[in-house]
Structure formats: C-alpha cells, structure tokens
Nucleic acid binder design. Sequence first.
DNA 1: TATTGTTATACTCTATAACTATA
DNA 2: TATAGTTATAGAGTATAACAATA
Lengths: 151, 151
Amino acid sequence: MHKHATGRRPAETEEPDLGGQLRSAVGRLYRRFRSERPEGGLGDAALAVLTRLHKHGPQTLTELSEHDRVSPASMSQIVNRLTSAGYAVRTRDPDDRRKVLFTATAEGDELAGAARAQRNAWLDERLRALSAEDRAVIARAAALLSGIADS
Amino acid sequence: MHKHATGRRPAETEEPDLGGQLRSAVGRLYRRFRSERPEGGLGDAALAVLTRLHKHGPQTLTELSEHDRVSPASMSQIVNRLTSAGYAVRTRDPDDRRKVLFTATAEGDELAGAARAQRNAWLDERLRALSAEDRAVIARAAALLSGIADS
DNA sequence: TATTGTTATACTCTATAACTATA
DNA sequence: TATAGTTATAGAGTATAACAATA
C-alpha cells in the first residue's frame, strides 16, 4: 500500500522504455488538454501567452518566444492574434526602442482568469480523485518535467 | 533531503494550483518534443499513428481516431499523408466493407523504428541525468497521467 | 436508419526566409 | 554589424459540415 515503506530499491525496477512511455503520456494528455477549447476564440498557444502576461506582467517578444520555445516569428503571429482581439497591447520600450513590451488589457486579464478556470475544471476533478500521495507524485513530476523542458 | 523521512503530511503542503502547473509543464514539454522533428518529413501526429500501426498492426480509421482523440475527419487526413508518402496502405475489410484497415508498409515500419529512436535520444539523455528516485517518480507519474488522458 | 469513412473548407500553430528599425 | 521584431509564405494539425457507401 505504501511503497516507500517496503524498502524496495528503485534501481531494481527501472522502466525499460521510460522515455517512450513519458512521451506517449505527455502527448495524449496534451491533446486532451487542447480539445478543451472554451470561449474567447483563442487557441492553446495564444491562451498560454495571455496567461503568462496575466500572471507575470509585461514581457518582450523575445522573452515570450524563448519561454515557449517557438521562433520569434511564430510568437509575433501569436501576439498579433491577441492584439487584434483586444486582449493585449504593444508598447515600445523607451530605454531600447528595438524592444516591444506586450501587456494584457483588462479584457485579456478577465479572459485569462475565466478561460483558465474553465480549462482546468475537468483536470482538477481528476486530480481530486487521486490520493494525496499520487498528487504529490504528480507535483514532483511536474517540476521535473518543467526542468527537462527548460534544458 | 529525503522529504518522506520528515513525517510531513502531504495534506498540509498541497499545491495550490497543481492543475495549472501540470498543464504548463505538459504543454512546454510537448512543444519541446514536437520541435525534435527528424527525417521522413512526417509531423508528430502522423508519426504517432505510424508508430501505432508499427506496434499494434492494422487498425481501422475509427480505432485510430478514438485512440488519439481526434475526429474521424482529422484522422482521415492524417492517414492520407501516410498513404501518399508510401508509409501505409488502405485495405477494405472483407467482412464489413464500410471499414478500412490501415497497415504500415515496409518503408513505414522502417521509418517508425528509426524516427522513434531519433526522437527519444535527447529525452533519454535527460532522464539518465536524473537520480533513480526521480526516474521512479516520473515513471509513476507517466502511468497516472496516461490514466487521466484516458478518462 | 445507423455506421464508416471521405472531401471541402477554415482556422490555429509553427517554421524559414526576407525585411525594417534600432543599437 | 548585431539585435529585436515583423511580414510573407508554406505546411501540419484540427474541427465542422456535407457527402457517399455499406450495413
């Protein structure tokens, strides 16, 4: 029941194809996330950027593109969708006029909060159904996976 | 150093936004996976289908679309790319002529093996750099996440 | 009628290449 | 020259709607 209490050594039970299993699990879960596309008319990439602006404040294009690991040209088009829809605005950085700061508007902040809650609803329900120990495993794994994505 | 040895009760330190953190980690890791686009000219969705045909044998369109949770129309276009490129073939099911079985060709089988190894290379390297305990956490989490994706 | 699959169309997301503006 | 950002263009992936063939 409580595996850590058994003294089992992880090295003896290493997964033979951990990479493949992780890739499959992440891919299918991502597609599942993406299929939950609610109000606001934004896709997952645009909503992720808007959420970041909402939570971390104004960001330059380069910062956004590096965080999401997409090309600057791709990010430029994503933020174009946000600005066209009125969810973000461009402002020139006065100290370095090559840079552009993107900031969420009031509508953008509102949508970020609402869409986030809506998109997380079904996931939160699944997580609540797990044991506290399983949630702790997922919390640790999320940090590890985020670190891998950064590397 | 070893959190479980402290007697800490998980309920007292529950993550306030585990769903959001998991979503973010999965999204960024998925994009990282997808950016590793090697030979063969296939995208991630087409390669995932080809890998499934390679590992599980002939499948109908409905089986493929349900497994990947995409619409039948979307899956039809994905397999179109596979058949156009010569990596899979269509055959009518003789017992129910509405059904179409998709089967990997010899070229498709070869590409599935090669591409899979190539795509997993960088991930396996990161996983090897972790401790055995961290790998065990990821292995458990992968099973949990796969279950959530199925639900 | 119901099931299986396809085509038509439109949208998001992404990349590369070529460009402008600022440092 | 180097950096920051944009636009043009192309292709993958996805969905909905409308359709054809078979059960």
